[in-house]
Design a protein around this nucleic acid. Structure first.
Lengths: 140, 140
DNA sequence: TTAAATTGTAATCGTCAAGATTACAAATAC
DNA sequence: GTATTTGTAATCTTGACGATTACAATTTAA
């Protein structure tokens, strides 16, 4: 329920689908595990489908499955699929009357680029397969 | 006006104060450069003051100055001073009925920790002094 | 062909964070 | 003492986002 859980919900969904293998999971089942509404799940699944990470089928016996092996889906893939890229918003309308106002935006966007790159580098390191291994290793 | 501009506004403010040197800048002056309201500026300045990064003085001829040399203030310092640390919110209430729901939170918080660390590492690399140099180098 | 199941998506509501604004007390220089 | 300026509370508005309802489109199976 807090703001911006889309990424963590996407990870949760991908982990569930990885565990389910070939058997399609319905949005209702997934929603129950995440404790949210099926429509919320369907919206996220739709984003993941648009990114080619999952396949969803309508109708009876429908549901979602991973479109790629879990070894080839990274946390960065999931984030890119669901997150609007504004981790560091820049204030607009800087006054063009002073040198800072005139140039701060450009300098800050350089900073933002480097920070974002560091984040991406880290998120690319973990695949859903590894994450599921971690889950199972400690799943009592 | 967009969401979460506090960090970029804090950087903007710090750059202005660095350029001003010993001369105190009022919240009205700063607000004009950022194109926002003086109270918004004062709130951010207050946060920076709490973190020991700036000094604010009330009354006539009052205003704010950097409390440290610009070489010793990093972007991470500014972010830590103004940003609530929730770049990656985790959804709560995961169902404890399935292994994913039971353990996803812990696994994700590990990921979050590593990503956040990468971000911090990057933000610690740039000081306000360097940023101001960049600004002046291209300030036409 | 009929019926049930399930996704896709639009529409709406409530909530929460955050910037904008007003107001005013406290402090400070002259 | 007066003007200036910060500190802060209170309020308003806006935007993002999750929750929910509703329904058309699709698919399987009997």
């Amino acid at each position: 329920m807090p703001g911006n859980c889309q990424f963590s919900m996407a990870v949760h969904i991908a982990a569930l689908l990885a565990l389910a293998g070939d058997a399609p999971k319905t949005s209702a089942e997934i929603a129950h595990s995440i404790d949210t509404n099926p429509v919320v799940v369907r919206r996220i699944v739709a984003a993941l489908a648009r990114a080619g990470l999952v396949t969803a089928r309508r109708g009876a016996a429908g549901g979602s499955v991973l479109a790629l092996p879990a070894e080839r889906i990274t946390l960065h893939d999931l984030r890119a699929a669901v997150e609007t890229p504004d981790a560091f918003a820049i204030h607009d309308h800087p006054s063009s009357a002073c040198p800072v106002g005139r140039n701060i935006e450009r300098v800050l966007s350089g900073v933002r680029g480097r920070a974002e790159a560091a984040l991406v580098r880290e998120l690319k390191r973990t695949t859903i397969a590894e994450l599921v291994s971690d889950l199972q290793a400690t799943a009592a």
